[in-house]
């Protein structure tokens, strides 16, 4: 069942005197529960596509439906509320708030929801437990390793129980072991919790965890591959 539908999706922006078009009439369908990897050279439009799906950027033209919602038709405040409900974003550089502990970082998106302190606590503990960091809840980001920071970021992304997880090079700043742990976690979230995951990556090894890999070039789809064997 299609969760994300992109038709003739185009994104342009001006830089200096020239117009840059990172996405150029892209067509794409993503099914519910799918784990999709996006690959391609720098400037091919991977992150732009991710941002459009996550609702933090708007298409210049074309249509983008996510779970039946036309994101371009939403006002800024409605789009913010939609993001809070439907999307979790995992950044390459984690983007945790440095003055907040791991617990507080994970709790941050829940502050937007009408939950009691106890309900928030239960959800944060559950999310940190899911990423295996329930004993690091009082640690600040600077007291965590890169892999641990990324797992806190994943806990923050899933704590509101969104249907979609978008991840922009989630292992781009990690060593091999940490990258494996993070990718295993994402795969677990996909297979066990049914999260639809769209991941941008430069690392071919990580695409093995996904169910489908798409290659982008100059803002269009280049080819599609089925997943390979997951490395040990």
């Amino acid at each position: 069942m299609t969760l994300i539908e992109c038709r003739e999706l185009t994104r342009e922006y001006r830089k200096g005197g020239s117009v840059i078009r990172p996405l150029d009439g892209l067509d794409l369908d993503v099914d519910r529960g799918e784990f999709l990897s996006l690959m391609g050279p720098s400037g091919s439009g991977k992150t732009t596509l991710l941002n459009l799906i996550a609702g933090i950027d708007s298409p210049t033209s074309g249509r983008l439906l996510v779970d039946g919602t036309d994101l371009a038709a939403l006002t800024r405040s409605r789009l913010a509320a939609w993001r809070s409900e439907h999307v979790g974003y995992v950044f390459q550089l984690y983007n945790l708030v440095p003055v907040l502990t791991a617990y507080e970082n994970v709790e941050l998106p829940l502050l937007l929801h009408p939950l009691s302190r106890r309900e928030r606590h239960e959800r944060v503990v559950s999310a940190l437990g899911r990423v295996g960091l329930d004993d690091r809840d009082s640690h600040y980001p600077r007291q965590l390793s890169g892999g641990q920071e990324q797992r806190v970021a994943i806990a923050r992304a899933i704590v509101t129980n969104p249907a979609i997880l978008v991840a922009d090079e989630p292992t781009g700043d990690l060593d091999k072991a940490s990258a494996h742990a993070v990718m295993s976690l994402l795969q677990e979230l996909n297979s066990e919790l049914g999260k639809t995951i769209i991941m941008v990556t430069h690392d071919p090894a990580t695409t093995a965890y996904s169910s489908r890999t798409l290659h982008l070039d100059k803002g269009r789809l280049a080819e599609a591959n089925e997943s390979r064997e997951v490395p040990a």
């Binding site: 800024r76 405040s77 993001r83 809070s84 409900e85 983007n95 708030v97 998106p109």
Partner: peptide
């Protein structure tokens, strides 16, 4: 700048 962008990505409205 990027921290405020993160907040908005998490769903914080511009008004908030």
């Amino acid at each position: 700048v990027s921290e405020h962008a993160v907040l908005q990505t998490l769903g914080f409205s511009g008004r908030l």
